[in-house]
Nucleic acid binder design. Structure first.
Lengths: 168, 168
DNA sequence: GTCTTGTGCTTCGAATTCGAAGCAGGTGTA
DNA sequence: TACACCTGCTTCGAATTCGAAGCACAAGAC
């Protein structure tokens, strides 16, 4: 790594794209966070947890599987699931198959809150993110960024594999 | 707000684009964060602060102006600038024009570290983000997301203006 | 069986985050 | 000058973050 030839700096177009992704992500998260806080007392991660769990047909997911869908530490997930459980939005159950696993299950209150909050969430995203875009833009974005995401999820972070589990 | 007609949910293409932006932003930040930590003992925000200050010709910026470039709370900025100052990477000076202002100035060590770390930073971003993209993709991304960013920076977050200061 | 290793989750401490409240300097108006 | 109101930044406390270390169960080798 040391003594390598100067890596060419990113050209202006690349910089613009890179900064734009980071900035849009941050800004959108902050905006969404405020709406979720106001309308449901949820942080973004709590919302994401509810959403991921609610997505599965049964409304039940293993902690690890939730973690793999989110960009978050496992200990942080433990903490947040505990918060959600305290509010009665999810229940922690143990798996019959694997005594180590913890299943996160959406309670009726959890599903109710998720649905109630989702409307405002969609509104915010639509208003901030999609307003200045047409259908082509949206398609292009999904395509290009989807490719980037797949690439990032594939290439391990140049050391320390993330506890292998990609093989669904 | 209450009793409005059901807002149409986002269609699959929109969802894909929205999720991709959020996920790519998070993943990229985590990857970059690790490189910065390893090679310079910097968090992403600390790096951003150094970068923003270093960008100005003089290597000097007011706290507020730095804050406006970043998506971060002002108190958090105070904290992080203090951390950087403690390591001798920046110096806090008072402005002769406005006694209230604090000027953040890059020290030689700060500039040196910034330059040293930048190489790896660029490598990570290039490897993770740009590898799966061609020039057209990059241009499209910058264009589309740039529009979104401008829109978001314009539209105030449906209450509580961010301490007006956009009029440079 | 039992040993070794792997996996799932939690606990711990230290660091960082935010917004609300506070302080001090500026600006406008009379 | 006196007063009210901005503006720039910091301080405060509570909540949240992470990785390292720990605990318990699982799975394979022998």
């Amino acid at each position: 790594m040391v003594g390598m030839p100067e890596p060419a700096p990113l050209d202006p177009e690349q910089l613009a794209a890179y900064f734009a992704v980071m900035e849009v992500g941050s800004l959108l998260q902050h905006a969404v966070e405020q709406q979720l806080r106001d309308e449901g007392g949820l942080s973004y991660i709590q919302f994401q947890i509810l959403a991921v769990v609610g997505e599965s047909a049964e409304g039940r997911q293993r902690m690890t599987d939730v973690a793999d869908r989110l960009v978050h530490s496992r200990s942080g997930l433990t903490y947040q699931v505990a918060q959600l459980a305290e509010r009665g939005l999810v229940a922690k159950e143990s798996s019959p198959e694997d005594e180590r696993s913890v299943i996160v299950a959406l309670t009726p209150q959890g599903r109710e809150l998720l649905e109630r909050v989702m409307a405002g969430h969609v509104e915010v995203v639509r208003g901030l993110f999609f307003t200045p875009l047409n259908d082509e833009d949206v398609t292009a974005l999904g395509d290009v960024l989807g490719r980037v995401r797949d690439h990032m999820r594939t290439v391990p972070p140049r050391s320390a594999a993330p506890r292998r589990r990609r093989g669904n």
